[in-house]
Simulated assay, not measured.
Amino acid sequence: MEFSIRPACLQDAALLPVIEKSAAQLFKTAPGLEWLADSDTLSEPVLICLISLGTVWVAQTDAGQVIGFICTEEFDDELHIWELSVHADFQRMGIGKRLVQEPYKHASDRGLSALTLTTFSDVSWNAPWYAQLGFQIVSASVEQRLRQLLDAEVKYGLPASRRIAMRLSIATAIK
């Protein structure tokens, strides 16, 4: 299947929660995390804000159907990945990797040092997948911003023992 990646536009904001909800259905197969399949998605106002910053990219088919997205935000000299979602009908086709390449290029062009994210340590399409791309686990105890994000996730209900922070140095090529 052919697809392309482009910067998100404001009109995409209404489409992205549907994609995120579809992607989240995979959590029904993750013991103890099934509830995430029915949890809240990023809100349209938040998406509009991030799109306005120029740090959201979408994957679309040649027919123009938006099938995935990645939302990021710049913090100091790092670009943080808030959400990466690919519609369930289009997963395992290389779309996620291509989406990660866009903020990587953006961060490199802007002279930033790294991409960061928080994720589940033990879910195959989370930390192990990001590790295949070159992301490394970082000690959140020494990274105040990441520690605060992990703490907020625990307050939301995510299990602390399963959450980690990861970083990909811009000096390291995506694998």
Rank of each mutant, 00 (worst) to 15 (best):
I51T: 10
F75K: 13
D122F: 05
I137C: 10
A24W: 00
D77A: 11
F27T: 02
A171T: 13
L33M: 14
I170C: 12
Q136Y: 02
L42Q: 10
E74L: 11
S121Q: 12
P17N: 03
E34D: 02
K105A: 13
I5F: 00
A173C: 09
W35K: 11
D62N: 12
G68S: 08
W35L: 07
T119V: 05
V18F: 08
S39I: 02
G157Q: 10
R163A: 05
D89N: 13
D89Q: 14
Y130G: 03
H80F: 15
I95D: 08
L26V: 08
N126S: 14
D38Y: 10
R167V: 09
L53Y: 11
I95C: 07
L158R: 14
L16W: 01
M1L: 11
I174P: 15
A160L: 08
S85H: 10
Y156L: 10
C9V: 15
D89I: 03
L146N: 03
L146H: 02
E2P: 04
S52W: 01
L47Q: 09
P45K: 06
A173W: 03
A24P: 00
M1K: 07
G111N: 12
V46P: 00
K155D: 14
A114E: 12
C71K: 02
Q11M: 09
L84V: 14
T41G: 04
F120I: 09
T172K: 12
E78W: 06
M93R: 15
A23C: 01
N126R: 06
Q25L: 13
S52P: 02
V142A: 08
L47S: 07
L16Y: 01
C49E: 13
L79M: 15
I164C: 15
H106A: 12
A23H: 02
E2T: 07
E2A: 10
K105F: 02
D38V: 03
H106F: 15
D89H: 12
T116V: 08
D40T: 11
L15H: 04
I170Y: 05
L53G: 08
S141Y: 05
M1T: 03
C49Y: 12
E153T: 05
I164S: 04
D12R: 00
V18Y: 07
C9I: 15
S22G: 04
R167C: 06
K21I: 02
A14P: 00
E153S: 06
P103Q: 07
I170P: 03
M1R: 08
V154G: 03
T29E: 15
A59V: 05
I164R: 04
V56H: 01
E20R: 01
A131H: 11
S121R: 15
F120Y: 15
H106T: 13
W57A: 08
S43M: 08
Q11S: 14
K105P: 00
T61R: 14
I137H: 13
T119G: 04
E143C: 11
E73R: 13
Y130V: 04
P45F: 07
V56P: 00
T29H: 12
L42D: 11
S161K: 13
F27N: 03
L42C: 08
F3V: 00
F90S: 05
S108F: 06
R6L: 00
W129N: 05
T116N: 06
F75A: 09
L47T: 06
A8T: 00
I137F: 12
H87K: 05
V154H: 07
E44R: 12
S169Y: 06
L15Q: 13
A107P: 13
A131I: 07
P103S: 08
F135H: 09
